[in-house]
């Protein structure tokens, strides 16, 4: 059996389908989050091409939301870019965690995969990739990532155009938060997962005052370390 990556054929189609079926339950949340981002961009004073250029090129909801006030107030370019970099820093951790699955792909294929790495695609892929053969995992990730991309881009386009017609008190941004909670809950069933969440969350709360969500990266690292420690502790005596 060859270990070349499969992109075509029945098995690849099935893995791609599994990807979009896995992310389907999160679609309402992605829709709401994209809509909220689109609305915020429309109200930031960016022109429509600028706003959509940002959405399409950056494709990073939380970084976009973080830089909008800076763009609107004409902050120095390096401050804007640095802020985005800090908000996006958690993706370095995701990228490190996923890299072994994509090592055999060409440079351009890896570039395309990297563009699709967001919070939802990362968590879903890490959860279920092991259920698929190694050579099918890239296409499984594409099923997740492309569905996520299309839904999010369409929703943020709708948000851009329809801004002003969706009352902010609907609290659509909360839908994304609830979806993240839903992803988190099954991870709490084992001790390292629980420790990662509890310590990551506690450090995140403590460092919330840092600018540009810098606390997020430190909190994530603290959570990972806590999980490693928790895994090494001796099992509880019954």
């Amino acid at each position: 059996m060859s270990d070349a990556i499969l992109w075509r054929g029945e098995a690849a189609r099935a893995a791609f389908r599994a990807g979009y079926l896995d992310i389907a339950p999160a679609i309402p949340a992605t829709l709401a989050w994209g809509l909220v981002t689109g609305i915020a961009m429309a109200q930031s004073g960016l022109t429509l091409p600028q706003a959509y250029g940002l959405g399409l090129l950056a494709f990073a909801g939380s970084a976009q939301l973080a830089v909008l006030p800076l763009l609107a107030s004409h902050a120095p370019t390096f401050v804007i870019v640095l802020t985005a970099l800090i908000v996006n820093m958690r993706f370095v951790i995701y990228s490190a965690a996923m890299k072994s699955e994509f090592v055999r792909l060409s440079f351009r294929q890896r570039l395309g995969i990297a563009y699709l790495i967001g919070d939802f695609p990362f968590v879903l892929f890490e959860r279920s990739a092991s259920q698929h053969e190694r050579r099918l995992r890239p296409v499984y990730f594409l099923g997740i990532g492309l569905s996520n991309l299309i839904v999010w881009q369409l929703a943020s386009l709708v948000g851009l155009v329809a801004a002003g017609r969706v009352p902010p008190e609907w609290g659509l941004d909360f839908a994304g938060m609830v979806a993240l909670v839903a992803l988190l809950v099954p991870m709490l069933a084992n001790r390292p997962g629980f420790a990662a969440c509890a310590i990551g969350g506690a450090v995140g709360v403590a460092l919330d005052g840092l600018p540009a969500h810098a606390g997020l990266v430190i909190a994530t690292l603290a959570g990972i370390i806590a999980a490693v420690v928790a895994e090494r502790l001796p099992p509880r005596v019954a």
């Binding site: 959860r127 993240l180 990551g200 994530t220």
Partner: peptide
């Protein structure tokens, strides 16, 4: 453990 840590921190 990165997913659980990142989700908790978010």
């Amino acid at each position: 453990f990165a997913p659980a840590a990142a989700l908790g921190a978010l």
